[in-house]
Design a protein around this nucleic acid. Structure first.
Lengths: 234, 234
DNA sequence: TTCAATCCACTGACCGAATGGTAGAATGAA
DNA sequence: TTCATTCTACCATTCGGTCAGTGGATTGAA
């Protein structure tokens, strides 16, 4: 029998976080894995997925490329992990806006702020998700968007609610508009840089102003006192 | 006198260079080159530039990959030709809108229609231009956007004119808004497909409606009788 | 009309370098 | 002694690109 005393965690002991499996720690360190994935993301952003070699990744980490395969079974695993994590996190980040109490106009504003804030805070992975999603195998693409695009569905839901409430123009095409709005917001990945001219807050306010006035109904504009009033926050 | 009929060739001296058009040709046939470039564009769209091998291209054309180099000096030449041609053509396509007589609102509407119409009509090359521009070498990137981004400049010009005329909100950030508008329009490449639900005309009208009401001034909205009136064409 | 020269368009074999990935040995902390 | 981690050496394949050669069409001079 191996000694039971010394072999608890690998440093800390007993009171770890989880009722972990039979052994101290099995397999690679998840924190180290995250480091490597982050390094891969940085390279993917600059060179593109197909333009990045496994050696590029290992160079960025500071190891030899053979060592990567202790953490991962294939190069595609990197891309998959990057995209899956950021996609799931993005969905979580907009949830509060979707479930907000209040009219659709308020929820749409909150949605824009949440989305823009998330995109900026996770700019590298978010950009990769947009640019390289199609490089994943069909199976893995499905694994991520299982059950359709929840993101678009949430936005469409807000737009429809707003039409019912009379704050959004009933004549706009909801499906088209949701795509157009999301396309507009996501385009920030093409030019936004941290330490740029606009703060994140101003960026989100500018986007929200454009988005909301672009679809507000006559009555919503009137009760706000003109589109320019609607455009400035609140 | 030499017979006038048989000697259409360039054998004769002097009066050659220009209108010859008939038989003799120097170097590769430009029409065939265009065919090959088109085939390359189709493959680039599906697999991405870095994901496409020269063999993929030659397969699509129906020749061996060595033969490609009769028409081109490198794989990057394909990408460069695709992007350069579509970029120049796009600039030409919006020129009439920019130079239009009339107020900025009318010119912006014309700009959107021209841009969307061009993008749809040249969907493959246009999409590649957006997605793969950064894969070009710095020198070739410069060769294309020499003198700054004329496209953005044109759009910013219209926005500024509109602010001066009082039809666009004087408080909007012109640089930001130009990027946001262009980002919104270009996002159509991610979901628009010919034979889709929307006709090109409806597509452009929808976009123009969103874009214009998103920045219209209070007075412009008022004189139109509400944003919904502004949203529907004219 | 003939014929040798030239050109076009493409083939197919080949190059060195780089690719993603594997297996086993070495390292080193607990 | 265990075992997580990394290194070293190596694999088959593919990559972009080169180049001599080829067959058929076209040419201009005789």
């Amino acid at each position: 029998m191996p000694s039971s005393e010394s072999s608890s965690g690998r440093s800390g002991l007993g009171q770890v976080d989880r009722p972990r499996r039979g052994r101290p720690r099995r397999g690679p360190d998840p924190e180290r894995l995250q480091e490597i994935i982050d390094a891969a993301a940085t390279v993917f952003l600059e060179k593109g997925y197909d333009g990045t070699s496994t050696k590029d990744i290992s160079d960025a980490v500071g190891m030899l490329k053979g060592s990567l395969y202790y953490y991962v079974r294939s190069k595609e695993d990197f891309l998959f992990e990057i995209i899956k994590r950021v996609y799931d996190a993005a969905l979580v980040s907009i949830q509060p806006a979707v479930e907000l109490e209040g009219d659709a106009l308020t929820r749409l504003r909150a949605f824009v702020h949440a989305h823009v804030g998330f995109a900026v805070k996770n700019l590298t992975a978010f950009t990769i998700q947009l640019r390289e999603f199609e490089r994943l195998s069909p199976e893995r693409r499905l694994e991520i968007t299982a059950g359709g695009d929840a993101y678009l569905r949430a936005l469409r839901g807000i737009l429809k609610d707003g039409q019912r409430e009379g704050v959004f123009d009933e004549k706009i095409d909801v499906s088209f508009t949701a795509l157009a709005i999301l396309g507009q917001l996501n385009s920030l990945t093409q030019w936004y840089r941290p330490n740029g001219r606009l703060s994140v807050k101003r960026l989100a306010e500018n986007f929200a102003g454009l988005v909301i006035t672009s679809i507000a109904s006559d009555s919503a504009v009137q009760s706000a006192g003109g589109p320019s009033k609607l455009r400035r926050s609140r």
